[in-house]
Design a protein around this nucleic acid. Structure first.
Lengths: 141, 141
DNA sequence: GTTATTTTTGCGAATTGTTTCAACAATGTA
DNA sequence: TACATTGTTGAAACAATTCGCAAAAATAAC
């Protein structure tokens, strides 16, 4: 229950919408969740929090580094609590499954490439798209 | 002047909008151009081609593999003629410069990561963001 | 603890990027 | 030439996201 600290540390006042949204993001069920989906969950929970507020709070969390924003294919942004180390993503285009991975060699090469091109790297985005060969990979949504 | 062939090869009829748009994309000035910017250039040239047509043609070109679509940060799609081999991009967040690069080791590792996660890779997107250290790197736009 | 000040929220309207639609034009084919 | 198919158009529709602003909280000052 130290979400309060989490918010304060980020320089954000503790308010109900921020708390609720933070809770939702922290639920392991909800890794890689869109703003719209956060909103839907709030509605289900009976909270009266506007969609605009959800976007606002997500942006604040992003600025504060509490979460990471991803642009998977398909237009909308997807948010993810940043509790772990840096990692990249594999996305199955059929079932939508998202797998996280980390590869030091790739990271290393990226730095090298940047340096070779006189660029100071601030961040990167790497998404691998494909089809997973799991039995339960089902076309959904 | 073999744009006609280019279009036919892609199974597209040769029409004025498609020709004009292809020409714009082939201009080295216009690597990494947005739909909106293609439209603006057409207007400047005095062509009466609708924005809807621009989007439609770009999508057709994408489907046909004539061009590649990128989602750089900032929302809108950016298109690039695919005359060369596969490559990824370095983007300077200050001046907007885009540098293309290719790194076999990164490609290799991506395949490996995909395989390790039971995923058949179809494509990927890798963008490195940073600030270039060029003298002429100027905040613009 | 009340009041004053600063933030934050909520809602609807506004934006942005993109797609769809219905009418019309062009082109291909028999 | 007549019919069918394909392409083009502007306008309207859309989806994701942001903005403007008055009302509601939260915090600070008495």
């Amino acid at each position: 229950m130290d979400q309060n600290k989490e918010l304060k540390k980020a320089g954000l006042k503790v308010t109900l919408p921020r708390l609720k949204i933070l809770q939702i993001l922290q639920d392991p069920e909800n890794q890689h969740i869109s703003a719209e989906d956060v909103y839907k969950i709030l509605i289900e929970q009976g909270e009266e929090i506007g969609l605009a507020t959800v976007y606002r709070v997500l942006n604040q969390f992003d600025d504060a580094g509490i979460l990471n924003r991803h642009h998977f294919e398909g237009g909308k942004s997807v948010f993810e609590i940043s509790h772990k180390d840096h990692h990249d993503h594999l996305v199955c285009l059929k079932c939508g499954k998202v797998v996280e991975f980390e590869d030091d060699i790739i990271e290393e090469r990226q730095e090298l490439v940047a340096k070779q091109n006189n660029m100071k790297l601030t961040h990167h985005s790497l998404y691998l798209y494909g089809e997973c060969t799991d039995d339960n990979c089902e076309q959904l949504d």
